[in-house]
Design a protein around this nucleic acid. Structure first.
Length: 654
DNA sequence: ATAGGGTTAG
């Protein structure tokens, strides 16, 4: 009676969960209680499985060698646990045991689990070996290999394996495509560019009738989003018959990632209007909040805030982090700080990073450093992004010594400085006028300086009129990013201010020769929940004339007080008066004028600009804030400027 | 048995 207990227990376990019988048909099954003398096997199998489930891997591993007959379930438990705990030694031990097992050595189910475990451990060669040694490769085995290739960013090999499947007549399924596509978008060293690989798999999926499968199509959208090919993502999305929250979220995320936040918000509205059963989840919310932050659409962000509270999404830290970041990026630092407090003990590194960068972008350098110190004090480990945030904050506030100390301290926290951190330091030193030190730092770099590093130097050269270093920076930038018109324009600007007109001409020819278009200055403002945007070149709209006239009146007032328009920067060969007219038409001034006309007195005017704020707009906006007694908050590409009573929060340092 | 979308950065 008692002797047979383990066996009957085992059987009833299978009967209760209803899995054993099914698995017996799928795979070979070891006969239960093969030797009557060993009451151990069934017991030991259960024990190992229990230990694995409770994370006690060392004990489970110790029992394995002495176990004469492990079951499929035992192997599976061990492999899942090894993958979860990143225990490479355990995975290898199970692998060895499995190879010596006459019953399970060729079992495709366990091969799949083994490949998955090796993939999770980053051991691609071992995963490949298991795959090669599996005699009967079912679709699960193939898909596990494709997943391993995706995790290891081996796009070309994934493509080759998909081709193998076709040649061998293995039917490819939707899982094969999703894994294959994920492998394709890797940018690591490979033969074919990522976009070519994705298009190849896309074409393959079309031929096999899988391109509209919900998971496959959603993955395609995400791939094209990551590659920046928005129109392909759009066409996949448009062709889908059946869209769910995930596909909508992927398309919204595509716009948000590719600098089209306004389209992301519009698509979210479409989603809400399209189907009552389509309910946004936390990921949708986070994407849309990010888009709101991107266009400074505070009123829409507030609507989402209300939605979050109504639906209980405020229980999720990720949502609160995104909400907090949205408020701060829309100019409401205080609200962001309040939400940070509200998150309380649930805050994670992202929350801390957000607060630091929030202070940074609003020019509160010392506060950002203080938050950094507090974060360390309460036991958080700073990440790569923490340092980018805090160094950026130092840069905006001109905290050179603090920045240097933080940069030096990075190694102590186990964070190796990357090009991004060097770019922050070059920016910090350069803005502060320490151009020689900035140059020295670049020369001391043990990694290749990125375009961002040279770009930071070039930006500093523009502020301080340093022609020599600007030329050095550009000699690299023209090589690294030949199609970036901004670099040519900056250098031309530096030459123009140095009155080197011949060189200005040379650069203008270069721009035309390569048909490079500079980014048009664009500013926008939200009035009555609607975004109104202005560009500098657009002076055909009748309302713009009215706005220019208003600015003209302010400028006339300012001239009486000794203001001289900053016409040194305009690159065209035109007369002084025409230059002034162009300055008056700068998009940021137009947006301010529009805000003055269309908002009530006392209301804060919030403007967003896609480029750095120019000196002339900065001076004029300071004047307007005093003259009209209006608070004006301008967000440019880098930071916030709070204009109040003729003074800007940046202290004219930006 | 396996799979799809998100947050912090200059």
């Amino acid at each position: 009676m008692f002797a047979s207990a383990p066996t009957s227990l085992h059987l009833s376990h299978q009967a209760v969960f209803g899995v054993g019988a099914k698995r017996q048909t799928l795979t070979r099954c070891r006969p239960l209680s093969s030797s009557p003398g060993a009451a151990q096997p069934a017991n030991a199998n259960h024990l190992i499985q229990t230990l694995c489930a409770n994370g006690r891997l060392a004990r489970a591993a110790a029992l394995l060698p002495g176990l004469p007959a492990p079951t499929q379930r035992t192997y599976e438990s061990l492999l899942l646990a090894a993958a979860r705990a990143r225990d490479a030694a355990l995975a290898a031990a199970v692998h060895r045991r499995l190879e010596a097992d006459p019953v399970f050595r060729s079992d495709p189910f366990l091969s799949t689990r083994l490949i998955e475990a090796y993939a999770a451990l980053g051991a691609l060669p071992a995963a490949r070996q298991v795959f090669d040694e599996t005699p009967v490769k079912n679709i699960f085995v193939w898909n596990a290999l494709l997943k391993a290739l995706a995790l290891a960013d081996h796009g070309d090999e994934a493509l080759a394996r998909l081709a193998d499947m076709g040649r061998l007549g293995v039917p490819v399924d939707s899982y094969s495509y999703t894994h294959g596509l994920k492998a394709c978008i890797a940018v690591s060293a490979s033969h074919a560019p990522a976009s070519a690989r994705v298009r190849e798999v896309h074409a393959h999926a079309i031929r096999r009738g899988y391109a509209l499968h919900t998971h496959v199509a959603t993955t395609l959208i995400d791939c094209y989003a990551k590659l920046g090919i928005v129109r392909y993502a759009e066409s996949v999305f448009a062709a889908m018959p059946e869209r769910n929250v995930v596909s909508w979220s992927a398309m919204i995320g595509c716009y948000a990632k590719n600098e089209r936040p306004a389209d992301a918000i519009e698509l979210f509205k479409d989603m809400m209007a399209s189907d009552a059963d389509l309910v946004p989840n936390s990921i949708t919310i986070v994407s849309v909040l990010n888009a709101c932050a991107g266009v400074n659409a505070l009123s829409h962000g507030k609507l989402l805030h209300a939605y979050i509270l109504r639906r209980g999404f405020d229980s999720l830290v990720s949502v609160l982090n995104a909400l907090m970041a949205m408020y701060m990026r829309c100019g409401c630092l205080e609200v962001g700080r309040h939400i940070f407090k509200w998150i309380g003990h649930r805050r994670d590194v992202v929350s801390w990073n957000s607060l630091i960068s929030g202070y940074g972008m609003h020019g509160f350098g010392p506060e950002a450093v203080q938050v950094f110190e507090e974060m360390i004090h309460v036991g958080f480990s700073p990440s790569i992004i923490t340092f980018i945030s805090v160094l950026g904050a130092c840069s905006h506030a001109g905290l050179v010594n603090e920045g240097k100390m933080l940069f030096e301290s990075m190694v102590e926290y186990g964070v190796t400085p990357r090009a991004e951190h060097y770019a922050c330091m070059v920016d910090l030193l350069g803005r502060a006028g320490q151009l020689d030190e900035a140059m020295e730092l670049i020369r001391s770099m043990h990694i290749e300086p990125s375009p961002q590093v040279w770009g930071a130097l070039l930006g500093a050269c523009r502020i301080h009129g340093h022609v020599e270093y600007a030329e050095i920076a550009c000699s690299h930038l023209f090589d690294l990013e030949p199609r970036n018109a901004g670099n040519y324009v900056l250098l031309a600007d530096i030459y123009a201010r140095a009155k080197l007109h011949n060189q200005v001409g040379v650069l203008k020819e270069l721009l035309e020769e390569h048909a490079l278009e500079k980014v048009t200055g664009c500013s926008w403002i939200e009035v009555k929940k609607k975004l109104h945007s202005f560009t500098s070149v657009d002076n055909k709209n009748p309302p713009v004339e009215q706005l220019q006239a208003l600015i003209g009146e302010f400028v006339a007032q300012m001239k009486n007080q000794g203001y001289v328009p900053d016409t040194g920067i305009v690159l065209y060969d035109i007369e002084g008066e025409e230059k002034e007219r162009i300055l008056i038409g700068h998009s940021e001034k137009l947006a301010v004028a529009f805000g003055l006309i269309n908002t009530c007195s006392g209301e804060v005017i919030r403007i967003t600009k896609n480029l750095r704020l120019c000196e002339d707009c900065h001076s004029v906006t300071k004047f307007i804030s005093k003259f009209t007694e209006r608070e004006i908050v301008v967000r440019d590409v880098n930071r916030f400027h709070h204009f109040r009573d003729g003074v800007c929060s940046c202290g004219d340092y930006w």
